[in-house]
Design a protein around this nucleic acid. Structure first.
Lengths: 252, 252
DNA sequence: CGCCAACTTGATAACATTCAATGTAGGTGG
DNA sequence: CCACCTACATTGAATGTTATCAAGTTGGCG
């Protein structure tokens, strides 16, 4: 565990206002509420939820928790990007997901985390003590249902990812990845093109089951065939969305 | 949809008794109750659940539902093995999971199934109309919670599978697969060694992201190095469980 | 008993990895 | 302010694991 700052300590200016608001009408002003567990809740219920949460921040590259740690806390991403990953003893890594604002993390099978969580970009989160959140879920079945729906969606995404990892070639994987990022961006009200790709080639490789070299080469190929353009600041412009979609589906 | 026989019609002799009991004290005598959604329920609640369920059977190789079908029904496997899979337009297939007695299927994101379901061996299931089951979940938060726990477990399994598909080599994949089957067997009260492997090489290949040829060769390798032995009737004896475990973890 | 599907084994090829070098950008200190 | 340093990204060449193509073999079922 690193960089677990309570409340606004260390929060950048742009965030300060939001966190300050959260202190008064916590969650009420949360920009990702509609995407999160909390979307199901009324004002009073939100207040109860806010009582048990702590705002925190994780700096780029820092670890929120590691596989095997006691899973006492659950989290909700409010800004930035996190990555979840599992390791093999010899260091091989599989990133199982990138989390964007509104995403939930920390579910565990026993009482330990089954994966590690690290910040891709500086990120802010709400932190909930597991026991207290579970107590609240008991009280508010609506919230339980919402969490279940989110888990179901994640499960469907995981199955898509299995198809990708098991059966798609490098070009199809990269195409699928860019479209996924684009789609997830729009759901959060960001522009879908150019797509913001904040993660390194190495992270992309470990998410797609490739090497950094192959990721790099494949980007170059897509760029050369004018399907995409690589822009400054980790942005990728999609020039031919249909072409990219066909590639992603293995139809091309 | 094929072979969706109501109640005991077409059920084999060994199952008939069980189904007959189910008609009187439905679920009460269900051998997989402790593993399923229903494990959380009291007698009265079970009765309500039984009111909305239909017992059915799917023959080997028959399809229960296909990706894209309207998801009006949810299912619980009571005997046999099912497989879930997704296809790419050109026919490439990824099996996302094998379901054993006690497992639940039919969760959907929109209102269509995101995958196809087919019987690996002749299987029996409980079928629930989605709407009526959802109504019941509303009434029994305990059941909602149980379903959520099951989805969480599936999610963890999916992440393990991503690690396998993204980062493990053929030998590691086969080793992991055999151990998984073995572990799942014990949880259901079957013997864990020899492991029952009812699925074809082709199914195993599509589950592990390999080809049938590679699966076959890898089994031969493991057999030659005496880690396993291939027995009659789709059984595999694990001779060196620790060795297999080391292989599976990528530690060897 | 014979047929068909599933499995095994072999030879060759391809896609992605590995190893290696060069290029580029962001950050730091002189 | 620029040179340097380190990270990361790109490109190239060689290797390797697994896929593909192609026979055979086995086994289950009619």
């Amino acid at each position: 565990m690193t960089t677990a700052l309570d409340h606004k300590a260390g929060a950048p200016a742009s965030l300060a206002a939001q966190v300050a608001q959260a202190d008064m009408n916590p969650c009420g002003a949360c920009p990702v509420r509609s995407l999160s567990v909390c979307s199901a809740l009324e004002a009073e219920e939100l207040r109860r939820l806010a009582e048990i949460l702590t705002n925190m921040k994780v700096d780029t590259g820092h670890t929120l928790f590691s596989e095997g740690d006691g899973a006492d806390m659950l989290f909700n991403v409010t800004s930035g990007t996190m990555k979840l990953y599992k390791l093999l003893p010899d260091g091989r890594r599989q990133i199982t997901g990138f989390l964007l604002p509104g995403d939930f993390l920390g579910l565990s099978v026993n009482d330990t985390y089954a994966y590690s969580a690290e910040a891709v970009t500086s990120a802010t989160l709400c932190r909930f003590p597991r026991r207290r959140l579970e107590a609240l879920l008991e009280e508010y079945p609506k919230m339980q249902r919402r969490l279940f729906a989110m888990a179901s969606n994640e499960l469907a995404a995981a199955q898509d990812q299995m198809l990708l990892l098991g059966r798609k070639n490098a070009k199809e994987r990269i195409a699928s990845f860019l479209l996924l990022l684009s789609q997830r961006a729009v759901r959060r009200g960001f522009k879908d093109n150019p797509v913001h790709v904040p993660m390194s080639r190495s992270d992309i490789a470990d998410y797609l089951g490739l090497t950094t070299e192959t990721v790099s080469r494949t980007f170059t190929q897509l760029k050369t065939s004018n399907v995409i353009a690589l822009l400054e600041g980790g942005k990728v412009r999609i020039n031919d969305r249909d072409g990219l979609q066909d590639l992603a589906d293995g139809a091309a």
